[in-house]
């Protein structure tokens, strides 16, 4: 059976860069099975972008009533009261950003330190198990982190970090003001930090390993100590990639749901103290979505989902582009 000219044209895609023609030369000449194969694979490949835009469309449509009703006020409004019909998402946006930034503050130095330790310093018999351990950390389900957070991390933080700090500096620093609740922005940031360290350190390690040997040897030959070599030569070379890794970690932290819902306290206020409870966008979805009865509440929650989606798309795209650029430069 010969394809009609239109079919052949669609398959070949016209341009010389068309993947169908380049990858499956037989598409143009004969073999029906190969043509079917090319179409099938193309359909599977297309399924992913289609699914992606369908998710965007579907969540967007569901959020439409809230978008229409509140407009930009949704993002800056700080009163969230489903009973009164007031929906302002600022406390959640604030909580998500605050906990994620706190997590980065803790996680980035640790992750970069770990990456340096693994690539520059440790012998293989230490590096392999440590690297495997961090991989396992990345595999632990979020809800298990949450369980551990509630029963171990939060009580420990309250007794050993929050209460001493609050009684010592609480009056002079508003960030450390009491009372020490335990479940707080700080606990959220801490659990997120533990969860994203493996991601940041894994990518940082790859980037550090991609720094050419000549650079290190040249630095050592000029009389640099090992630390000077690392700090002044290796790290500057790897900085764009480490920034990419950090942004990837940020993307994880922003969208993290279960663990942080269990330890952040879930109070829709904008806290001024690290020791006070907050709320995140993902948490309010987890807690209120199944109880939302009226249409506006549901639409408002959908809009929060849409904002969260948008932020993570943006953050992940930037991170991917950065990491790719560095990888391409290292490959040349």
């Amino acid at each position: 059976m010969q394809p009609t000219p239109e079919q052949a044209g669609v398959l070949a895609g016209g341009g010389p860069r068309s993947w169908v023609r380049r990858v499956f030369p037989s598409v143009r000449h004969g073999n029906l099975a190969d043509r079917a194969y090319a179409i099938t694979l193309g359909a599977f490949g297309a399924a992913i972008p289609i699914l992606f835009f369908f998710i965007l469309l579907r969540v967007g449509t569901a959020a439409w009533p809230a978008l229409q009703r509140f407009g930009g006020g949704f993002i800056v409004g700080s009163d969230w009261n489903p009973v009164a019909g007031n929906y302002g998402a600022l406390p959640f946006i604030f909580g998500t950003l605050a906990s994620s930034l706190l997590a980065l503050l803790i996680a980035v130095p640790l992750a970069v330190g770990l990456a340096i330790f693994l690539t520059e310093l440790s012998p293989r018999w230490i590096a392999a198990p440590v690297a495997f351990g961090t991989e396992l950390l990345a595999a632990i389900p979020s809800v298990v982190y949450g369980l551990w957070g509630i029963f171990v991390l939060v009580p420990w933080l309250r007794a050993n970090v929050q209460q001493p700090l609050a009684s010592a500096f609480g009056d002079s620093f508003p960030l450390f003001a009491g009372p020490a609740y335990g479940t707080s922005i700080m606990a959220g940031g801490a659990i997120l930090a533990i969860m994203i360290v493996p991601f940041i350190s894994a990518v940082s390690r790859e980037v550090l390993a991609a720094v050419p040997r000549d650079q290190r040897e040249a630095a050592l030959a000029l009389g640099a100590t090992r630390w000077e070599m690392t700090w002044q030569v290796v790290l500057p070379y790897a900085v764009p990639g480490i920034i990419g890794a950090t942004i990837l970690g940020l993307g994880r932290a922003l969208g993290e749901t279960m663990a942080i819902t269990m330890v952040i306290g879930n109070r829709p206020d904008i806290p001024t103290s690290l020791f006070a409870p907050g709320y995140t966008m993902a948490s309010v979805l987890a807690n209120e979505f199944s109880e939302a009865s009226d249409e506006l509440h549901l639409a408002a929650l959908m809009e929060i989902g849409l904002i969260l989606f948008g932020i993570t798309i943006l953050v992940n795209s930037v991170a991917r582009l950065l990491v790719w650029r560095v990888a391409r430069r290292a490959g040349k």
Binding site: V59, L254, G255, F289, F309, T312, I313, V315
Partner: peptide
């Protein structure tokens, strides 16, 4: 990188 909760509401 899509948050799992967003997939849930979708």
């Amino acid at each position: 990188g899509i948050p799992s909760i967003v997939i849930g509401i979708f």
